[in-house]
Every structure is written in C-alpha cells, then in structure tokens.
Design a binder for these strands. Structure first.
Lengths: 219, 219
DNA sequence: TAGATTGTTAATCGATTAACAATC
DNA sequence: TAGATTGTTAATCGATTAACAATC
C-alpha cells in the first residue's frame, strides 16, 4: 500500500522534503560526533524550524524506521539520507564561468563532501585561463567539449553571465553531459534527457527583502 | 473584498510568488531594453517554466493591472515588482566571514542593483583583515559592533563556518541590526524583532542530486 | 504499568490549475 | 464582429498539521 517506503528506488520526488534533507544531515552528523546514538523528532526541533510531525513524515517518506520511546538511530538516518541523495558516491563536474560566483563555488568545500567534485574550471578570459584556483586548473572554453567527452564528466555548472548561458549549455549538451546546474538567470533550452536545475540567489534575496519590508512597516 | 490588491502595504506574504519575482524582473528588463512596451503572459512563458495563469495570479497578487488583448505594460510591471521587493531603495549591509563564499558575495554585482549594498567585510583572519576585496575593505570582527552602531547599518550577512554563526549573530543583534541573511547551516537564535533568513546552497544541490539520480535510474 | 515516541489516518491549509466570463 | 487576453471563481492538487492508535 505504501508505495514510497516499500519502493527501493523511490522514484517519487517530494521537493519540499528533499530541500530539508541537508539540514537534517548536518544536525545528525553533529549529534553523532557528540556521541549520541539515537535522536527523537521532538529533540531535533531544538535545532530546527520545523514541527516534529513534519520531520517524521519526511523520514517515513524515505523509509527510515524509528523506535517508539527511543527515536531514530543516527547512523541509519545519516546513511539513508546520504544514499537517498546519492551523496555517498561522487560525481565529477566542470564549472564554466570563473567570475566571483564561479570562483567561490570552485572553493566551496561542502560540495565535495556532498558528492560533487568540481575538477576544473573554464572561461574565455585570457587572464583566467591557465590559472589555478582553489587547486583547480582553469581551461579555455574551447577545450570544454573535448574534455567532457574524453574524461566522461557528467555534470556541468554554469556560472557565466546570462548572455552566454545558453551557448555554454549547448556545448555541454553536445558533449554529452547528463546534468546542468545553472546559476544564470535564464531558462535553458535543453533536451529532455538532460537534467537541468536552476539556482537563483536572487530568489533568496527577494524573500529576505520582503521579510525586511514587512518588519519595517510594522515599526 | 480583494484585500491584497487593494491594500497598499501588502502585508500578506506569498513566498512562492515572491521567489518568482526576480525571474520576472530579469525577463521584463530584457524585453524593455529590446524596445517592447507590452507583454502578454502567453508570450512570457517562452522564457519561463511557469504556466501563464500562474504569472497572471502573481500579478493580480501585486495589484498590477493588464489590458485585455495587449497584455501588461513593462514599465508598470517593473516598477511594481521593484517597489514590492523594495529594490528601488538601497540597504547597506556588512558581511561577516570572508571565506570563498563571502568573497564571492562581496563581488556579486546583482545585489547592488537589487537594493543591497555590501559596504564592508569582517573576519578574524589576520591575513584577511586590512585587505580590500572587490573594492570593499575588510575589518576585524572586533570592530563590527561599534561600526554597526555608528554607521546605522541595518543588514548583516553571515558567511562564517557554522560553529561561529551564532556568536556573530549575537554580536549583530546586540549592535542593533534589523535583519540577518544567514548562509551558515545552523538555525540562529534571534529575538522576534530581527528578521532572519536562512539561505542554503546545499538544498539546491540536494534537489539537483535527486533529479540526477532519478534520471540515472531511468537509463 | 505509565509514559514517551513513532507512524497512520484524517483534516486543514495553501498553491496551482482549469473553466469561463469580461474586456478591448 | 471575431479573437486574444485579462482576471474571477471554482476545482484540483499537494503539503502541512492534527488527532490518535500502536509500540516499546
């Protein structure tokens, strides 16, 4: 009856749940390091903005069983979440566009712990090509296609200005990439068998701005 | 009857709508620069992942009127969205934690266009203190409180490792900050009159990872 | 046993989508 | 007028919350 919990592949996407998983993971790892073995959802919300029942629903969704009176085994929860996210095996990625955002992502350590290893950067700026940033070499964009093919890289990260984004996506797709994490502000046109996920810092700023305005109004 | 459209203050928050606004804004500005004056929601979705009716609902929510047969006036839409977000007047902000992410945000140009001007950075690393990054000077954390008070800065951006985040938040709150944009992975304990918005790159990566896994499974 | 916690089932809430009348 | 588009009202969908039985 419960298709989700009993289905090992877990094909059903519940985005709100997925977005909460990294937060859970972070807290659970902390608790584990502090020597805990079990945690209850009521204890968890001290570190969390969500209600315990919501956490429980998320865990049911991933098929993680708890023990009445005890809570959930940290080791199992961590393993289940990491496996669900695929963060226990690493994808190699190329990053295109070494501006200030690209620069930061090249050095963002959590990505490597979370199954995404950026192995090189690409740009067209001669001042950047040849440089080594956070230990990763920067190549000219013209090398991208050949290197994707030769090295079998599956993931591309786009941090170029929006005007260039579609062109870069076209090159990546042509080279046979499987997924694109797009930090530019444009909707990319890609074939249906390429995963394309758009990330927008501006959306976060918009929410923050509106919350601030609301607070200001009430003063 | 329609409290939202008729209420100038628009106190009601609809987060999903707010998150879409920056995307609209970006497209609308582009169209305006290309010389268009009006746009219909059906035309808009060429550049968008949403359905036209959803865009229309969002516009009704902000009280932006359209003209049957013509669509919406770009100038009015842009002005209304910017005013709703408060992106037409600028907040000054301090950024704490000049690691690779902080470094990038200091140089992230869209923020300035969107009402958020980072005017200085703070860190405790002697190698960073005194430096100038993307034109912004880096001060020692110990100067933070006094400078917030003296300069009347209202917004703090936290990009320190999670272990330090609560301490930095405490300093900001004590100094009288109004809002905190928190890029660390911990839930900050702040008084109710301080706006605190958490941003998580990991959530984005989680969604991307799960989409990738799903695609892989279907191969 | 008493009590805390899980996990199921049902209720509520809010957002998206559909249908369609109103407008130019 | 005919046709395209807005904007209202209703229907659907999905996520969160509440209530409570099951479990240790």
């Amino acid at each position: 009856m419960n298709e989700i919990a009993s289905n090992g592949n877990m094909k059903i996407l519940r985005l709100p749940t997925v977005k909460r998983l990294p937060t859970y993971l972070h807290i659970l790892k902390r608790l584990e390091q502090e020597g805990h073995e079990y945690v209850s959802t009521t204890a968890l919300i001290n570190e969390l903005d969500f209600k315990p029942i919501l956490v429980r629903k998320d865990l049911v969704f991933m098929g993680i069983p708890g023990k009445p009176r005890m809570g959930y085994a940290l080791k199992d929860m961590i393993a289940a979440i990491e496996s669900y996210l695929g963060w226990n095996n690493t994808d190699e990625a190329f990053l295109v566009g070494v501006g200030s955002l690209g620069h930061a992502l090249l050095g963002h350590k959590p990505f490597e712990e979370n199954g995404l290893k950026i192995i090189a950067g690409f740009d067209i700026d001669p001042k950047k090509v040849g440089a080594v940033i956070h230990g990763k070499k920067i190549f000219h964009l013209s090398k991208l296609s050949e290197m994707v093919k030769r090295m079998g890289v599956r993931v591309g990260i786009i941090t170029v200005p929006w005007q260039e984004a579609q062109h870069v996506a076209d090159v990546l797709v042509e080279a046979g990439i499987w997924g694109i994490w797009n930090f530019s502000m444009v909707k990319l046109k890609t074939p249906p068998d390429v995963v394309c996920h758009n990330e927008s810092l501006s959306s976060g700023l918009a929410v923050f701005s509106v919350k601030m305005n609301k607070m200001r109004d009430s003063h």
